[in-house]
Simulated assay, not measured.
Amino acid sequence: MPELLTVPEVMAALRLSRAKVYDLIRSRELASITIGRRRLVPAAAVAAFIQARLEEAA
């Protein structure tokens, strides 16, 4: 998995819509950075998001 993921890659990884991914970024539940006009999400942030959801469910 690359270090930084594009929004479409995050959408595929989490099986979520574009709007939901941007909602998560906006609410700061999913960390991201901007380089130029591109919004990129660290792979570690996706893993942390999944881990947090697993802990909530337990």
Score class of each variant (00 low, 15 high):
residue 45 A to H: 08
residue 3 E to Y: 08
residue 26 R to S: 15
residue 53 R to N: 11
residue 58 A to Q: 13
residue 10 V to E: 02
residue 56 E to D: 13
residue 28 R to P: 01
residue 41 V to L: 02
residue 23 D to A: 09
residue 16 L to S: 02
residue 48 A to Q: 13
residue 31 A to L: 06
residue 40 L to S: 04
residue 50 I to K: 14
residue 47 A to W: 06
residue 7 V to G: 00
residue 16 L to I: 06
residue 30 L to E: 04
residue 7 V to F: 07
residue 56 E to W: 11
residue 25 I to M: 09
residue 25 I to E: 01
residue 38 R to D: 07
residue 50 I to V: 15
residue 51 Q to K: 14
residue 46 V to N: 02
residue 5 L to W: 10
residue 55 E to I: 14
residue 38 R to F: 06
residue 46 V to P: 02
residue 32 S to R: 01
residue 14 L to R: 08
residue 8 P to N: 15
residue 42 P to T: 03
residue 20 K to Q: 10
residue 4 L to S: 00
residue 52 A to R: 15
residue 31 A to W: 03
residue 22 Y to E: 07
residue 36 G to L: 03
residue 15 R to E: 13
residue 43 A to P: 00
residue 25 I to Y: 04
residue 50 I to T: 05
residue 32 S to F: 10
residue 52 A to Y: 06
residue 46 V to C: 02
residue 58 A to S: 15
residue 24 L to N: 08
residue 50 I to N: 01
residue 16 L to D: 05
residue 49 F to N: 13
residue 11 M to W: 03
residue 19 A to Q: 09
residue 51 Q to W: 14
residue 23 D to G: 07
residue 13 A to Y: 07
residue 10 V to N: 03
residue 13 A to F: 08
residue 48 A to R: 14
residue 9 E to H: 06
residue 52 A to P: 01
residue 41 V to F: 00
residue 36 G to Q: 04
residue 32 S to V: 11
residue 26 R to M: 10
residue 16 L to W: 02
residue 53 R to Y: 07
residue 52 A to H: 09
residue 42 P to W: 02
residue 1 M to V: 09
residue 19 A to W: 08
residue 43 A to E: 08
residue 49 F to L: 14
residue 28 R to C: 09
residue 27 S to A: 09
residue 19 A to L: 11
residue 52 A to D: 13
residue 5 L to V: 13
residue 35 I to V: 15
residue 54 L to Y: 04
residue 36 G to A: 03
residue 3 E to W: 05
residue 14 L to G: 02
residue 50 I to C: 09
residue 20 K to W: 00
residue 13 A to V: 08
residue 40 L to F: 01
residue 51 Q to N: 06
residue 43 A to Y: 07
residue 45 A to M: 10
residue 34 T to Y: 05
residue 11 M to F: 07
residue 51 Q to A: 15
residue 47 A to C: 04
residue 36 G to S: 03
residue 11 M to Y: 01
residue 19 A to T: 13
residue 9 E to D: 11
residue 17 S to R: 05
residue 43 A to G: 00
residue 30 L to P: 06
residue 22 Y to A: 04
residue 29 E to M: 08
residue 6 T to Y: 02
residue 47 A to M: 08
